[in-house]
Design a binder for these strands. Structure first.
Length: 724
DNA sequence: GCGATCAGGT
DNA sequence: CACACCTGATCGC
């Protein structure tokens, strides 16, 4: 694993790294191999469970039980073989060539037969086409395709979540209460005329007419949903714009017209405006200091003004507005349920839950305060939400039962002096600067080195945690494990005195080995990396994707004037390009800064030999991921190398590749002229299936998602999906 | 001038 | 979608 380094103070090499990736020989399970799990796959649809991903060929079995050490991706016994074109089995050759060819199922690449020939040419080291990996890939592709069929079911699960049911319920107009069947009569929400006989378009015309003529009476609308909708869509309902316009005018008068939207979205009326604090402004999205101060100052001036004369002309002119607002809010209360609006706290869907403590259901984990949390994260505090308290630390940055914080440097407070950092990615260490003086930072050795080197945190502030070793910090037993995310990434188990253990996954990619390590006290709360917590994200094992990339490179390499580009983050994806180097037996170019960084990651000397900072020594270059994002940038690179290279083949490894389109394919190939870009689903987060497996195994009482998205992917919805 | 922070982009 | 990061603008010391 990445962090095996941490096991040994003096030597932070990544063992067992001596092995060479040999994709060309049949593989054997390694010593550490565990038999594939026999337990039934979790499936939202039991009837379809007979479509497992071919157990005998899962990467877990072919490779060494899902291990993570670079070297152990494949058995160490097989140094790169000098085999053996003569042993090639033609039928399977078709298989593996078609891997590359099929990538191009969008079209362009590689017709079958010719390309096969090219494959052989490119196959400098030769290899047994009948390899397990080739079978693994074709197999997994089949199973993936089959799994696509399950997808609908998964989506159904999602849409059937508690949240969704509520949303559906809420979005039904009152008029359509009784079933809303299509035979029911449809009334205009304004004049209540039966408009069933009209076409949909005609109905729109009708209601729009009513709107135009009846606008002043909108307060009498029956459906509060409609009112809310109007606010959401002021363009369609101009009368409401004028409702809010004093606020908007005021904002405009400050020269901050760009924030009008914010006030509109938050439905801030004149009264509310005057009670806004600076915190509120921050929370509704006015994050720039300047504008915020400006508004705050203007507000205090406004308040003073209001105090000075309680019946000022300005207030007078606005009274009708505020009255209307009040009226609206009372109407609202009286006619629930109401339609959810974009700016509604998810908490509101779960009355009581937000303020309740941990809600425990027998055997079923729940999303703890998930609702409140999702609101807190994006807009730290919402209007009227926090009684003026400052920055709210999101739930997932806290460790229940302890005063500790995890990846919470954006929320530095003086009441905490134990700060954990799970890994060195910007979104987790953001806020951490070298002037940090809030106590100790606990992290893995690799992360500590990076934090020290890149941010300048002095070593005195850093406390290295070694993998799988329990230590006691402020009375809490703390153990960390390899998170299999990026080098140095850890998951942390906290065992506070109250007996309720907390597992914080940080960002992680599931592996079965984690479960071996996680034995011990049962986990009460699980803070879970839910990046891909949606059934639509199901991607192959990393090993399979590496395999795919290697084969694609081989297939494309018939042209000696080809430049290969592999995308990478500051840290992450190393495994991918290191394996490519090993397999192709070619050095990989990285820039000096990257080399310095890689030197912190504990690679062995042998591994480091695969890297070079001399551009001319390699035609495989590691570049930042975003330079591959657009063909425009790629063309720019191509222009730089017109003399040396006639073809560019780029690999863009990201889990999002397996989004809505091209689901679960091991990669796809895009081409523009002499530039080819492969998008490969190489993910360093757990797939949905893996998340389910993990949650199932850990079986916590409470799940706290570390989510970035809200809406239908709310915490509650996610938890419900995980449990389905 | 520099570091920190934010907005907007890929 | 928004991974994890970049660039450029702005702010404060």
């Amino acid at each position: 694993m990445w962090n095996t380094a941490g096991d040994d103070d003096d030597d932070f090499q990544i063992p067992p790294s001596s092995s060479q990736l040999s994709i060309r020989k049949p593989l054997h399970p390694t010593i550490s191999h565990r038999p594939p799990r026999k337990k039934p796959r979790l499936s939202p649809n039991p009837g379809k469970e007979n479509i497992p991903p071919a157990p005998e060929f899962t990467s877990d079995t072919c490779f060494s039980s899902g291990s993570h050490a670079l070297g152990s991706i494949l058995p160490s016994s097989s140094s790169t073989p000098d085999c053996i074109p003569s042993s090639v089995d033609c039928s399977s050759a078709g298989d593996s060539c078609s891997l590359a060819a099929e990538v191009g199922n969008d079209g362009v690449l590689v017709g079958g037969e010719e390309k096969k020939g090219e494959c052989f040419k490119a196959n400098r080291e030769g290899y047994s086409r009948n390899s397990m990996e080739a079978r693994l890939l074709s197999k997994s592709r089949v199973s993936l395709r089959l799994e696509d069929e399950e997808e609908d079911e998964c989506c159904f699960v999602e849409s059937d979540s508690e949240l969704d049911v509520l949303i559906k319920l809420c979005s039904e107009p009152e008029g359509s209460n009784s079933g809303g069947g299509k035979d029911d009569s449809i009334q205009c929400p304004l004049c209540e005329t039966d408009i069933s006989g009209l076409s949909e378009e005609e109905r729109h015309v009708h209601t729009n007419n009513c709107l135009d003529t009846q606008a002043p009476e909108q307060g009498s609308l029956k459906s509060s949903c409609f009112i809310e909708e109007s606010v959401d869509d002021p363009v369609q309902h101009p009368e409401l714009v004028s409702d809010l316009s004093p606020v908007l005018k005021w904002v405009r008068s400050l020269g901050l017209a760009k924030y009008e939207d914010v006030f509109l979205r938050e439905e801030i009326d004149w009264d509310t405006l005057q009670s806004l604090t600076e915190e509120d402004l921050l929370s509704i999205g006015i994050t720039s200091l300047g504008p915020r101060k400006k508004i705050a100052n203007a507000l205090s001036a406004l308040r003073e003004e209001a105090c000075a004369s309680s019946a000022e002309p300005q207030a007078q002119s606005l009274s009708n507005v505020t009255e209307r607002q009040r009226e609206r809010s009372t109407t609202r209360k009286a006619s629930e349920p109401r339609k959810p609006t974009a700016n509604k706290l998810i908490t509101e869907f779960f009355p009581g839950q937000a303020t309740d403590g941990i809600r425990k259901l027998p055997k079923e984990p729940v999303a703890e305060k998930s609702a409140a949390d999702s609101g807190c994260r994006r807009a730290a505090v919402r209007r009227n939400g926090n009684n003026g308290k400052s920055k709210v630390v999101p739930q997932w940055n806290c460790v229940p039962g302890t005063p500790f914080r995890v990846d919470a440097f954006k929320y530095l407070t003086r009441d905490c002096c134990h700060w954990f950092l799970t890994h060195f990615h910007l979104d987790h260490y953001q806020g951490l600067t070298k002037s940090f003086s809030h106590g100790k930072i606990y992290c893995s050795l690799i992360t500590a080195k990076l934090v020290n080197m890149k941010i300048g945190i002095p070593w005195e502030r850093l406390q290295v945690l070694h993998l799988n070793q329990k230590v006691n910090i402020a009375g809490v037993d703390v153990t960390c494990f390899d998170a299999n995310h990026c080098p140095g990434s850890i998951m942390i188990r906290f065992e506070p005195a109250n007996g309720k253990a907390v597992l914080h996954t940080g960002d992680f990619r599931y592996s079965e080995e984690m479960l071996n390590l996680l034995t011990g006290s049962p986990i009460s709360s699980l803070v879970l990396d839910t990046t891909y917590c949606n059934p639509q994200y199901d991607f192959p094992k990393q090993e399979a994707v590496i395999q795919f990339v290697v084969e694609a490179i081989q297939a494309e390499a018939f042209n000696p004037k080809t430049l290969f580009l592999i995308g990478s983050y500051t840290i992450g994806k190393e495994r991918l390009f290191l394996e490519v180097a090993r397999v192709l037996r070619e050095k990989i170019y990285i820039n000096p800064a990257k080399l310095k960084l890689l030197e912190c990651l504990g690679f062995s000397k042998e591994d480091m030999r695969w890297f070079t900072v001399k551009e001319e020594e390699s035609h495989i270059h590691v570049v930042p991921l975003w330079t591959l994002a657009s063909f425009k940038r790629l063309k720019h690179i191509a222009n730089r190398y017109t003399n040396r290279y006639s073809l560019i083949v780029a690999f863009s490894p990201t889990g999002w590749t397996s989004g809505k389109s091209k689901k679960k394919s091991p990669g796809r190939r895009l081409q523009q002229g002499t530039i080819i870009r492969y998008e490969v689903p190489y993910s360093e987060h757990s797939s949905f299936t893996e998340l389910k497996e993990f949650v199932q195994q850990v079986s916590p009482e409470v799940i706290i998602p570390s989510v970035n998205n809200d809406g239908p992917d709310s915490a509650a919805a996610m938890v419900s999906m995980l449990l389905t």
